[in-house]
Computed example of a mutant assay.
Amino acid sequence: MYTPPAFRDEDKDSLLATIRAARLANFVTATADGPMVTPLPLFFDGSEGEQGVIYGHLAKANPQWRIPPVGEAVAVFMGPDAYITPAWYATKRETGKVVPTWNYVAVHVHGPVEFFEDADRLLDLVTRLTDLHEGERAGPWAVSDAPPEFVQAQLRGIVGLRMPVTRIEGKRKMSQNRNAADRAGVAAGLASSDRESDRAIAPLIPS
């Protein structure tokens, strides 16, 4: 990922917060047939390996797991993003020498990938993933709520993935390259936007 120094995020807590907040990631492998990408809910387990492990699962019918990857896989986790209009910059009024851009947070996690079909491992994986996303609900659903024979049948239709983390790249592009007046204009513009997603980014703009 191209990351100018001003936008580089190397804070581990910040990187993990982005990974955990992303409810859906893109799982990417390079193959002899070209790149393959699958949107997947993935989760990070920091208790395994030197830098943690990414877990998830694919449909068994998905050919991505059957085609040998070339090199490491990449999991792409996106954080908040917003279009930035030049109209918000003080520099626009001063010189007019401004262009639109996009602010965003992204984390790319690299590592070798292992696919597995073991039923016990798959049950543990889907249970952990389900508990993660159901945990905030008032009446959370659990894998054990479904009939065991139904769950086993569903497990036969998926393949687990385990990716030990070798490298994490973080990018937080939040107008850090603009002057203080331009940043203030961006923050104010986002805060007054009709889009909830824009308003959520306003506090992330450095003062």
Score class of each variant (00 low, 15 high):
Met1Gly: 10
Met1Phe: 10
Thr3Ile: 15
Glu10Ile: 14
Glu10Val: 13
Lys12His: 03
Asp13Gly: 12
Leu16Thr: 14
Leu16Asn: 10
Arg20Asp: 11
Ala21Trp: 04
Ala22Tyr: 03
Arg23Pro: 01
Arg23Gly: 03
Ala25Gln: 11
Asn26His: 15
Phe27Trp: 10
Val28Tyr: 14
Val28Phe: 15
Asp33Val: 07
Gly34Phe: 14
Met36Cys: 12
Met36His: 12
Pro39Ala: 06
Leu40His: 02
Phe43Ala: 01
Phe43Asn: 01
Asp45Asn: 02
Gly49Trp: 15
Glu50Phe: 03
Val53Glu: 11
Ile54Ser: 05
Tyr55His: 12
Gly56Met: 08
Ala61Tyr: 05
Phe77Ala: 07
Phe77Trp: 05
Phe77Met: 04
Pro80Cys: 04
Tyr83Ser: 14
Thr85Leu: 03
Ala87Gly: 01
Trp88His: 02
Ala90Glu: 13
Lys92His: 10
Thr101Arg: 01
Trp102Val: 14
Val105Ala: 06
Val105Lys: 09
Val107Cys: 03
Val109Phe: 04
Gly111Trp: 01
Phe115Tyr: 15
Glu117His: 15
Ala119Thr: 15
Asp120Glu: 15
Asp124Gln: 09
Thr127Gly: 06
Thr130Ser: 15
Gly135Ile: 01
Glu136Asn: 09
Ala138Trp: 05
Ser144Asp: 06
Ala146Phe: 13
Glu149Asp: 14
Glu149Phe: 13
Val151Ser: 10
Gln152Leu: 08
Gln154Asp: 07
Leu155Glu: 07
Leu155Cys: 07
Leu155Gln: 05
Ile158Asp: 09
Ile158Thr: 10
Val165Ser: 00
Thr166His: 03
Ile168Phe: 08
Ile168Asp: 05
Lys171Leu: 12
Arg178Ile: 03
Asn179Arg: 02
Ala181Gly: 06
Arg183Phe: 04
Arg183Gln: 05
Arg183Cys: 02
Ala188Ile: 04
Ala188Thr: 11
Gly189Gln: 14
Ser192Pro: 01
Asp194Tyr: 02
Asp194Gln: 13
Ser197Phe: 03
Ala202Val: 13
Pro203Arg: 14
Ile205Glu: 07
